[in-house]
Design a protein around this nucleic acid. Structure first.
Lengths: 210, 210
DNA sequence: ACAAAAGTGTTAGATTTACACCCATGA
DNA sequence: TCATGGGTGTAAATCTAACACTTTTGT
């Protein structure tokens, strides 16, 4: 599962199934794990094949293994999600077979992929509150508006702007880049980056980001 | 992974490995998933074979699939943990091949089982704070001392008694059974049960138990 | 000058933490 | 009567939530 933010909307990359029983339905990306390849390596390979990116945030979520979930026979799927900065993605098959879809507009997917998607979303929502994984969805330099919007769209909630800023600055993990965005037709926002180095030193302290 | 409380200590059931490379070392319980059996069904089967119990709390945690983790060849392990009330367990092989071990006294396990164990413990510690899964480790009727001790031993922390009671009563999910323990050489504690029915109605509200 | 989003503090309420004494039972 | 753990309340500190006006830019 490849998640990204497309125009401030929480989205996932889907591909049209070429499997006869589900022809033309949207499905998640996947492939078979090779015998001489670890699960993580397979996940990175599949991701890289599809997006051209190779250093990404990946988390294994769950294995799905009911007996008749795939019409071709017994298939066990080990689900991972990746968080990507959508601007850096070059879709390898960028005809209409491979598309970003907004999470809240997804209807029926092929196979048991709705269940897998829901499970991954729940995991991400959990994770994003206590670890700074959401930053993988943004460029390295971002505004506080970007950051707040990320949490709002992924969690499907709205946040108070002043409280959000206070809380996030309170972590001491934002680096003021002394730069501003430009070409916006309103007061330009300051740009920040996230201090991953400092975070790695203090991450045992159970931080809450929102 | 089968977790239980043995004399108020957080423990896990281990078996002596009969695999040549790890002969005599302790390892986690496992078995092969049959082709016509779901992952969950396999987990329940293995558990029931070992403990004689069949209605238990089980959670899938993670799949482990590095290439050379098992000397016999490519093996992918899908880890689950179960929480059992140790008093109800009848060990099927209760010679010295199958034993409860206190978590904090476990040394080196066979295969990559230390890593699997650590991952499961982390998951359980996370889960237990926001869902009432810990109650599966206790008998149906318990004292507040039992309950506090459960959280303390699983999380490896100490808690203030008055605050713990206040917090837990605050959930409104404890049923006063109007009974007391007996044959203790101090003031007997009241017995409670957990209101799972009520919990299921309100579980969306994101409760924190400690 | 106007429209749009950026930036900024204070206060009330809720939650969390720290802490000490009397009570009921069995030995 | 003694030892052991059960049961109980309050106050300070911290955290969370609610809320409105001025600033800076492009058009």
């Amino acid at each position: 599962m490849i998640f990204g933010l497309q125009d401030y909307n929480f989205s996932v990359l889907l591909i049209k199934s070429d499997f006869p029983d589900y022809l033309g339905q949207w499905s998640l990306l996947g492939d078979i794990v090779e015998v001489d390849e670890s699960l993580d390596a397979a996940a990175y390979r599949i991701l890289s094949d599809r997006t051209g990116l190779d250093s990404l945030y990946l988390e294994q979520v769950k294995s799905f293994g009911t007996v008749n979930r795939h019409p071709a026979g017994r298939v066990i799927t080990i689900a991972y999600y990746a968080l990507v900065n959508i601007d850096q993605v070059r879709l390898v098959k960028d005809d209409n077979e491979l598309h970003w879809h907004q999470i809240d507009q997804i209807d029926r997917l092929a196979f048991d992929h709705n269940e897998i998607l829901d499970t991954c979303i729940r995991r991400l929502r959990d994770r994003i509150r206590s670890e700074p994984v959401g930053l993988n969805l943004l460029p390295d330099e971002f505004t506080l508006r970007d950051l707040q919007s990320l949490y709002e769209t992924v969690l499907g909630i709205t946040l108070d702007r002043r409280n959000f800023r206070k809380k996030f600055f309170g972590t001491g993990l934002l680096i003021d880049l002394k730069k501003q965005e430009n070409n916006v037709r309103h007061r330009p926002a300051k740009l920040y980056s996230f201090d991953f180095e400092k975070y790695n030193q203090i991450k045992e302290e159970s931080i809450h980001f929102i």
